[in-house]
């Protein structure tokens, strides 16, 4: 009787390799759903739409960012370039006297001059908006 029980193969044999692969696939499916919902929300916010309509855009039109997208890690040189600002515009408006300011980030400059970076970034945004308002 005891021998019979020992010789019967277990009904609950687990194939670990298959179990791991199946669980990985389930995790992947969940993450893909999360990804799809993120893309969907970006589409609703209008982030994806410009990319789709980009195919029909004229080639000479350079993509750009808005003044509100200016961040503390951006350099003055990049901001000047992207918004097509005259080289003397930001130094005059923000009272910048450092001759090496072009290659420093907004955060570095604010730190060096003891200004809170969020306030400084906002003042740069405002200056750019004023310029763009006059020169669309």
């Amino acid at each position: 009787m005891t021998e019979d029980i020992n010789n019967t193969p277990s009904k609950f044999h687990v194939n670990w390799a298959r179990a791991i692969i199946v669980s990985l696939i389930i995790v992947l499916a969940a993450v893909l759903l999360w990804f799809a919902s993120d893309v969907n929300s970006l589409y609703r916010q209008g982030v994806v739409r410009p990319a789709i309509s980009r195919a029909g855009r004229k080639m000479h039109t350079k993509p750009t960012i808005s003044a509100d997208q200016i961040q503390s890690w951006m350099t003055f040189r990049y901001i000047d370039y992207v918004f097509n600002l005259p080289s003397a515009y930001l130094p005059t408006n923000l009272n910048i006297s450092d001759p090496k300011y072009l290659n420093s980030t907004l955060e570095e400059y604010a730190e060096k001059n003891n200004i809170k970076d969020t306030i400084f970034v906002q003042s740069v945004r405002d200056s750019v908006k004023v310029y763009k308002g006059g020169n669309p």
């Binding site: 990804f35 980009r54 960012i65 997208q69």
Partner: peptide
Amino acid sequence: VFADNWQAIYGLIGKFGWIIALIIII
């Protein structure tokens, strides 16, 4: 392609880059 709104896409790649790693592991 996403040049106008690359900052949003930057976040998306950072967040979901490991999906590709997971596919490779599988």
